[in-house]
Simulated assay, not measured.
Amino acid sequence: MTLCLTYDHVVSWDAELSALTARIADPLFKRPEPKAVFSDLVRGLLADVPRKNSWQLSDHLGHPTSNRIEHLLSRAQWDADLLRDAVRGYVVEHLGRPDGVLIADDTAAIKKGDRSAGVARQYCGLTGQIENCQVMPMLTYASTAGHAFINRRLYLPEAWAGDLGRRRVAGVPEQVVFATKPQQVIDMLGEEIAAATPFRYFTADSGYGRDPGLRVFCHAERVAYVMAVPVDLPLLAARGGAEPVGHVLDRLLAMGNNSVWERRSCGAGVKGMRLYDWAAVAIALAEQQPADGYAHTLLIRRSISDPGEVEFFLAHARTATPLPELISVAGMRWKVEENNETGKDLLGLTEYQVRRWDGWHRHVTTVMLALAFLAVTHAHLDDEPADPAGKAHPLRERAH
């Protein structure tokens, strides 16, 4: 499949990007200079530049030095949270659907030194080991129209949170205190609820699914979720006490009844539909109750080619929610990883040269806007009408 484009279409994209950056920049900046540099920065992030650092972006944009971009990110007066709100509004306007899904995941930027805000030796999901890095919990909005980031956090390790000297040098605000990554996701979910972001489900990997505080928040706020959970998550045993999730699978296998498994797809992948065998069991969490009218269900996903490869998902959804709906939500979790990959590989999500707290938030949120523009533009490709002769529109995807 290829994408056939016309010159008029590229011109239209350029006009739309100009209108978008101008509309968003107006309330952010009081002076015309930072408005112009902001627009340049978004264009640079979307351009074919080998590394999206301030020097190479400036060279591509024709700036004589990197001072303009560095000033915008590090010293100019503007609020990255206002930009975040504008990105959210843009995404919801074009991609928002009542059945939208919020997806949490964290990504990492490997960095040198120890003075950039939040940099520390800590677990890095990128490599699966301890690295000197920054960790960034990100929140994606996904619907049938497309998906893009709408919120972000920079994780501040405990060693940073209590180091007043390093905080001062990195410009960490006084009100920022240590919070676990699940607590940061709770805070972001609270912001989306307050902003009336339209979504029906929340999903995340087992690093978040295992956190009782996150589940308590979702139960209290009546947030439906399908989160991966570890094999030792405690469930309420039938005869009292607690038992790990893995015991449920042991009982199913001991029954030897293949009818409990359903072969279903959890979405399309690069190699076609992602088919697995699924089992669903009504369960009760130890010391945690679902919201009124909701129930807990354990989903067990088993690989077809390797039945020993199993993953567990905990669902909190309205009573009698059909299994295919829950499986579909579980499959949406990969959308945030696609955003992380696109953000890093194409848009310079982790290629910043900023050390301070404000600079990080400004760079990452500007990347979020660039990604949102790509997602919205892609979503509107199918809105283009066919030509009068009845031929496929040249902007649509078609097979050669």
Rank of each mutant, 00 (worst) to 15 (best):
A291L: 09
D187W: 10
D277L: 12
A392N: 08
R215C: 01
V49R: 14
M1L: 09
P64Q: 08
L20E: 06
L3W: 14
A25G: 03
K35G: 09
H361L: 10
D163A: 06
Y225A: 03
L395K: 10
L371K: 05
L45Q: 15
Q353R: 13
R84P: 06
A386Q: 11
L395N: 15
Q134G: 11
E33P: 06
G118Q: 01
G343M: 03
P137A: 06
A315G: 09
P198L: 07
D211C: 13
A315I: 09
Q77N: 15
V49E: 12
G162P: 02
Y225P: 00
V270F: 04
Y123I: 04
E158K: 14
Q183Y: 04
R362P: 10
G207N: 09
P290K: 04
D211P: 14
E191P: 11
V49K: 11
P50H: 09
R263H: 02
S58P: 02
A22T: 13
R23N: 08
G267C: 02
E174I: 12
D232V: 00
E287I: 01
V135T: 08
V223H: 00
E325C: 01
L314N: 09
L236N: 04
A295Y: 05
N132F: 09
N258H: 14
T365H: 03
R274V: 02
V367R: 02
E16C: 05
T6A: 15
Y155R: 14
T65S: 15
P388K: 04
A161Y: 05
Q175K: 15
R301S: 13
V177Y: 12
L349G: 07
